[in-house]
């Protein structure tokens, strides 16, 4: 049985070294994430990792300075409202290393996939990871426990455990609670992954490189990573690989994940302005942004267009298409949108 070493473990030290040398410019791990949540707890082990659905990777080591305690505290920052898996390691780098994927139980639902809203802290409490290989079930001897450890957190405000159909969790294709990166047989077909390797997924985390924001799971987002495949050759000189996810490096997304759908008056009407004025009213070019204008301002402008008082025939034509009540509704919604410009 081949033990497939997770890519990031062998490369983590090199990645940190590169970052330390300034190889990545400014960013280390999660600094580019605008809003974050925190996971805390204590463990007997050392390494705590998070694998998230955008392909990003986060890790921390627990504070083991108190040698008399097996409850080493840790705190791991992860992106808010992004689905992630947690994995913890004891005896890291030793022959008796044990890798334990974590599932969370909330409200009677158990899943390895969870998210926490911005600013919230998921307090796991003490996670009694095994230290001795004799204490775990590991049929194939790959050092990864065969069943995830289920934790009922101490505090979980703002955290949701996510159940999805099999096949929809790309980080855990077979929904067995063992993330692909540590799963010797991602699809449970009996053929070890080592014989089914995917050239388009260098870190084997289940997120195709094209859509992976951290292709080598070194904790440095590709946009900030000078060596996307972690082969030691910088991207500019590397003939074999460079994926900067270029289109995402210059986008200023206005997307804020919402937890559930709500019907908002005016939103659907206002969305019909977005083809010309940008998503949520934020234009990407010289045409006017209409986000964040006061409702009164938008209403007055639309009425002027309607009357033909402005020399803007296309807006005059558009304004004729909406009743006064519709204009008020869309203007009211646009007023609630944050503008990417300094002012209107």
């Amino acid at each position: 049985m081949t033990i497939r070493r997770p890519f990031m473990l062998t490369s983590l030290a090199a990645a940190l070294l590169l970052a330390g040398c300034g190889g990545s410019g400014s960013s280390t791990s999660s600094t580019s994430v605008a809003t974050t949540a925190t996971i805390t707890g204590t463990v007997p082990g050392t390494l705590i990792e998070a694998f998230c659905t955008d392909g990003s990777y986060y890790s921390t080591h627990s504070d083991s300075s108190d040698a008399n305690s097996d409850k080493h505290p840790f705190s791991l920052e992860i992106p808010a409202s992004v689905n992630c898996h947690l994995v913890m390691t004891t005896n890291e780098g030793e022959p008796n290393e044990i890798i334990t994927p974590i599932s969370i139980e909330l409200d009677g639902v158990i899943s390895g996939l969870m998210y926490t809203k911005a600013g919230f802290e998921l307090e796991l409490g003490h996670v009694p990871l095994k230290m001795d290989l004799a204490d775990i079930v590991d049929m194939n001897g790959d050092g990864v426990v065969d069943e995830p450890m289920v934790i009922i957190p101490e505090r979980f405000d703002g955290t949701t455990v996510v159940e999805v159909e099999e096949g929809l969790d790309r980080l855990d294709s077979d929904n067995d609670g063992i993330p692909n990166v540590y799963d010797d047989d991602d699809d449970n077909d009996g053929t070890p992954d080592v014989d089914e390797s995917d050239d388009n997924d260098r870190d084997d985390d289940g997120v195709d490189d094209r859509y992976d924001s951290d292709d080598d799971n070194d904790g440095i987002k590709d946009d900030d990573d000078d060596d996307d495949d972690n082969d030691g050759e910088t991207d500019s000189k590397d003939d074999d690989y460079d994926d900067d996810n270029d289109t995402s490096s210059n986008t200023s997304t206005n997307y804020t994940p919402v937890s559930a759908y709500t019907v908002t008056t005016g939103r659907l009407l206002a969305a019909q302005c977005a083809m010309c004025h940008g998503t949520n009213g934020n234009s990407t070019n010289g045409w006017d942004s209409i986000a964040g204008e006061s409702a009164r301002e938008t209403i007055e402008e639309m009425q002027e267009f309607k009357s033909g008082g402005e020399d803007e025939p296309i807006m005059e034509a558009q304004a004729h298409g909406y009743s006064d009540a519709e204009i008020e509704a869309l203007a009211g919604w646009l007023a609630t949108q944050s503008s990417s410009e300094g002012e209107d």
Partner: peptide, 23 residues
């Protein structure tokens, strides 16, 4: 579910529910 497992809900009334997501 929340009624049956009242403790979890009582601890944190604003907790989001866990659910199989519509696809």
């Amino acid at each position: 579910k929340a009624m049956g497992l009242g403790t979890a809900a009582l601890l944190s009334p604003q907790i989001l529910r866990a659910a199989a997501l519509p696809h």
